[in-house]
Design a protein around this nucleic acid. Structure first.
Lengths: 190, 190
DNA sequence: TAGTTCTCTTGACAAAAATCAAGAATTCAG
DNA sequence: CTGAATTCTTGATTTTTGTCAAGAGAACTA
């Protein structure tokens, strides 16, 4: 299962061959159909996954309005980190936007990694730290950029996404309405 | 040094007495005067600290405009996490808003903790995960709340801060101009 | 293919927030 | 205490963004 090993390596920086092999045996390939839920708000998230293909949306229903937190794709992982790590009810709902292939590890096996893989907790820490820094960037974009600038910045780095998912989700993720998004988009195209 | 041990315990959940003692010996008490810099953008941040008293502002100069990322006070820690963990040039400038007392550990000693304190890397991971979740909440507030709602929400939880620091910094931190902040504030007071 | 649903766009308008400018109020240094 | 600097407020105005409503377009279903 060479492919999964590559994911693990790029996520956690593990180059050790036997550790890689041990790890990849603990992940199970899973398929989701478009529309399937990976997780629903209020449930306990006892798994995390690498995305092999497809797109998943992380959102929450906020007084009848859906707030999209992120759209995750190949090269990202997926889980509700708070729920997964601290055993709290999940804040987020996660749903497949397309057919999806993921590699999933359950919490029980995940915890075993600490016993099996040398330096696992260090690698895990670095991984979560990267997630933290990623969010720090997003906060900064809300403190210092207009809707239009956030659009441009995101578009530069995620062009593919714009013809793969309903644009209203991207709008929400960037903190603007679909109408504003549409108008900015029009301006950018011309 | 009972006080520092309490910080460590509440941050990292360490109840082990000898570990606590070992750790607290690695932190040094440091004093900063109002206006002193703890860290400047572009430098390498090779330390982290717990705040014993006083207030520090984390900000960055963005094209001549200062963007305040956060104001840290007693009960928070202070560092540039990205720089501290990944040895990259610091994005943030950190400056004392008042006279400040902190407990500081340098990177060299910090790394020794892993060898000395049992389960240290697990605790560290949990600590950083909490920081992540904290930022997730902030993102959510920008995706789902108006400036006024962000003001209220922040005010409810940080009343003390409002008469301790220049309000323009809080405004920036909440992603609005000082003028907007002032108008919202007026509305709230009446 | 036709009908239904979902998504996107557009316009008119309203509300929120930014900008600019001036002047109070407060803080700070000497 | 006094003058200077900083911070805060206020008003007038502009820009940005949101809301509501209607319709166009695309995707999906039977």
């Amino acid at each position: 299962m060479k492919e999964l090993e590559q994911y693990i390596e790029s996520y956690f920086g593990i180059a050790h061959l036997d550790a890689l092999q041990t790890m990849s045996q603990m992940f199970k390939p899973v398929k989701l159909s478009k529309g399937d839920f990976y997780l629903q708000t209020g449930n306990y998230c006892d798994k995390m996954s690498f995305i092999r293909s497809g797109l998943l949306r992380i959102f929450v229903n906020n007084d009848g309005k859906e707030v999209t937190q992120w759209i995750s794709s190949k090269g990202y992982f997926i889980t509700d980190l708070a729920s997964f790590i601290f055993d709290t009810p999940a804040r987020w709902t996660i749903q497949a936007l397309t057919d999806v292939e993921i590699f999933t590890i359950n919490k029980q096996n995940y915890q075993k990694l600490g016993e099996i893989v040398p330096q696992w907790h260090v690698l895990e820490k670095l991984f979560i730290a990267k997630c933290f820094i990623f969010l720090e960037d997003r906060i900064f974009s809300h403190l210092s950029m207009s809707a239009e600038e956030r659009y441009q910045h995101f578009f530069e780095n995620n062009k593919e996404l714009f013809h793969q998912v309903p644009l209203q989700y991207i709008a929400s993720m960037l903190g603007m309405t679909p109408e504003t998004f549409s108008r900015i988009r029009k301006k950018q195209l011309s």
